[in-house]
Nucleic acid binder design. Structure first.
Ligand SMILES: NC(=O)c1ccc[n+]([C@@H]2O[C@H](COP(=O)([O-])OP(=O)(O)OC[C@H]3O[C@@H](n4cnc5c(N)ncnc54)[C@H](O)[C@@H]3O)[C@@H](O)[C@H]2O)c1
Ligand SMILES: NC(=O)c1ccc[n+]([C@@H]2O[C@H](COP(=O)([O-])OP(=O)(O)OC[C@H]3O[C@@H](n4cnc5c(N)ncnc54)[C@H](O)[C@@H]3O)[C@@H](O)[C@H]2O)c1
Lengths: 214, 214
DNA sequence: CCAAATTTGTGAAATAATTCTCATAAGTTA
DNA sequence: TAACTTATGAGAATTATTTCACAAATTTGG
């Protein structure tokens, strides 16, 4: 089990570790058992020493003269990221996107188990989606007390995201994945990640418009 | 119209510009007409001089002693990003996610107009989704020649993403938004952005697991 | 069992990004 | 119109991240 060696780990490193896992899993699916940092770097579009430095924050996972055992490295990185366990999550806002996510099997497969679905619309409360009964947002606190969820997913309209966040924070959640296109304010101990694919489209737009500045 | 002043613009700056637009649009919706870098920074969770530096890459948009006119600043940033126009896009892989995206109105509203839907499954070809007829991927090149799309969206399974990318590149696209959880290889002139919300969940998982290292 | 070939892990060097500081410009008030 | 207030824009200082370069470790082949 990898132990963290250093104090501060750059956010960029965490993002890259997620990419390494993705690429390593695809390599594993294709039958690769061992890989060295050079070809892995090429597949991930980064520098080889970048990979070695990123891994060095957590321990020594390679074999000199050989490389990395794909299976072991996946296990080491997922353990370092803390994704080698079940994370219980709840979802707030059972609209189009919320329903699509509730039906998406991959969440459970990857250990992110959605165990509660909440909405404030009286017409939606009581409805069943993907085996879960939609519950009134007001009951978030009591329900999370029961099921011990730690991560909240927000899929409400943007102007409701802050309210949903407040409910989640009050209920004791300490991580939020926000799909609504608005920033939310939470206490320091609560982590927030934003998913907004327009941000990516904007980046594409910029890079296509200014090909020289890349 | 803002003119780019400097050579290289950090990727992080582009990402933040997208956040600024998002926050400014929400401020505008709430009736704010002028804002200075300090409160805007607070709302975006960044440093105020960071905002001023980011904007300085593109020109001078503020008024000393006053701040920024929200409406003007939105216009300036969107123009800098190149999103003050229509971008014609095509989508490859009309499955669950692909259909959800085709039905999502926001794309057109934001100027990213999906003008073609492609799939390789003979049962899907000919089907109509959100006013578009699903066409065989093989016909990508001829169709793009007709409709002049510049951006491709990939929503195929991960092991098919590279093939889809190859088709798109051959058809002359120069930007790809890849929702499949696999990295793709493309020529230098083609820009790729990846959307993977497991990466964000992994980041949450890490930050919750190691609260001290933040 | 030793030598050659690899490839890791890491401190040092080079780059890059962020934050600080303050002169300068614009607006406001009397 | 002059004094005062405010907040930008830009260079300097600081801090962070990435890349380089090489010693150390391991395997493999003779
Ligand atoms: N639909 C998509 O493909 C898509 C893609 C990207 C982002 N988004 C974003 O995701 C969010 C949801 O999109 P959607 O298309 O599902 O919208 P939607 O209107 O279908 O769903 C929103 C749901 O949130 C519920 N809600 C509103 N306020 C609430 C509150 N305070 N507490 C709990 N529930 C509340 C509503 O009752 C509704 O069921 C939006 O912010 C949208 O911008 C959607
Ligand atoms: N469904 C979700 O909520 C979701 C969320 C995040 C990411 N994703 C990812 O998005 C991708 C699609 O997911 P999905 O649930 O829509 O899967 P899906 O199986 O429903 O759809 C995939 C579609 O791609 C088509 N396809 C396969 N190979 C193709 C090719 N070479 N050219 C053109 N079309 C091709 C298939 O015929 C099918 O229609 C997957 O990679 C998945 O991991 C899905």
């Amino acid at each position: 089990m990898p132990q963290q060696k250093s104090e501060h780990i750059p956010r960029a490193t965490i993002q890259r570790l997620a990419v390494y896992v993705q690429v390593l899993e695809n390599l594993q699916r294709e039958g690769t058992e061992v890989i060295s940092s050079e070809p892995l770097a090429k597949a991930c579009n980064v520098n080889a020493s970048q990979i070695r430095k990123d891994l060095a924050y957590f321990g020594e996972f390679g074999v000199r003269g050989v490389g990395y055992y794909v299976k072991n490295l996946i296990a080491s990185i997922t353990s370092a990221l803390g994704v080698d366990r079940e994370w219980r999550t709840v979802l707030v806002g059972v609209g189009n996107l919320g329903k699509a996510l509730l039906n998406h099997k991959e969440f459970r497969l990857r250990g992110f188990n959605i165990v509660g679905a909440f909405d404030c619309d009286p017409f939606k409360i009581g409805e069943e989606v993907s085996g879960l009964e939609v519950v009134c947002t007001k009951r978030l606190r009591e329900m999370i007390g029961d099921n011990g969820a730690e991560i909240g997913i927000i899929t409400t309209p943007p102007e409701r995201a802050q309210r949903a966040a407040n409910h989640l924070v009050e209920a004791g959640i300490n991580g939020i994945l926000n799909f609504a296109p608005s920033r939310i304010t939470v206490p320091d101990h609560v982590n927030v990640e934003y998913v907004d694919f327009f941000h990516h489209l904007y980046a594409l737009s910029f890079n296509i418009t200014h090909p020289n500045t890349k």
